[in-house]
């Protein structure tokens, strides 16, 4: 078997006031879909920032493609709040990620990605004029523009209404599926975890650690899974477990 895309061994973190994460050991293979599920404050955002190379690694080991992660290479992070540049047009928000390539190529690639995500008619608009769902699509397009094998998503759809959320989940599966990209998605929504994860890591707070790994015994992925009758039994079970975890922590 080839080396995993992402590998964590005994990873921990401390912001300076007690441990936030301890002893995380996980591997993610190329094209795999990992969901990390845990209550608020269990260190999910911190974990993603470590994976993105935005925080220094002080405890344990974290390797992305066999090397410690470097910000701006190897992985694209989609933030909890979209963090679009309000003073740059939709098109420019994507083009900025493609720095270093010829201008014409950047334009073409950005337009192509936005087209794929249903924003083809909004290229010249300002991000402020987009709806919440469209802003998330733009953030996804920007992440896809980074030519990297791993997407990191921090509760990306938490602020969307249920219908828009389902659409975005399908979009994420479609776009990453086409190019065989892996993703690590962090959420506190059991429904989202069950619909999107090949594997689900259940996290426990104070300090953040892995309680157990769940491999959903459900057919397909996304909407297909949701339609399976067993989805709701699994949802109820996993929800109970999460409630338990939140209470203990």
């Amino acid at each position: 078997m080839s080396a995993p895309l992402l590998s964590l061994r005994g990873l921990g973190h401390d912001h300076g006031d007690g441990p936030v994460l301890t002893d995380l050991t996980v591997e993610v293979g190329a094209g795999e879909r990992l969901v990390i599920l845990g209550p608020s404050g269990c260190g999910k955002t911190t974990l993603l920032r470590l994976m993105a190379g935005l925080l220094p690694i002080c405890e344990g080991q974290l390797l992305l493609d066999g090397r410690p992660p470097v910000a701006g290479r190897g992985a694209a992070l989609i933030f909890q709040n979209t963090r679009l540049l309000p003073w740059r047009r939709v098109r420019e928000n994507v083009e900025l990620v493609l720095a270093g390539r010829p201008k014409a190529e950047r334009r073409e690639r950005a337009a192509d990605l936005l087209q794929r995500l249903g924003l083809g008619a909004r290229l010249e608009d300002w991000p402020g004029a987009l709806s919440g769902g469209q802003k998330q699509r733009l953030a996804l397009a920007r992440a896809l523009a980074m030519d990297v094998p791993l997407l990191l998503l921090d509760e990306p759809f938490a602020n969307l209404d249920p219908l828009a959320r389902e659409q975005m989940q399908e979009e994420l599966l479609r776009q990453t599926g086409v190019e065989g990209r892996a993703f690590v998605l962090v959420t506190h929504s059991v429904d989202e975890a069950l619909a999107l994860g090949d594997r689900i890591l259940l996290m426990q707070p104070r300090p953040g650690r892995i309680l157990r790994e769940v491999t959903p015994d459900l057919p397909g992925i996304g909407m297909e899974r949701r339609r399976a009758p067993r989805f709701y039994t699994a949802l109820a079970e996993l929800s109970d477990e999460l409630r338990e975890v939140a209470r203990e922590g």
């Binding site: 910000a71 933030f79 900025l96 990620v97 720095a99």
Partner: peptide
């Protein structure tokens, strides 16, 4: 600072960040 962090995580160099994030 969140926009600066976004720039860093999307591989924007110091000059790009200056021109498209800090100056505006």
């Amino acid at each position: 600072p969140e926009l600066i962090e976004m720039g860093r995580s999307y591989g924007m160099g110091a000059l790009t960040r200056l021109r498209h994030i800090v100056l505006p």
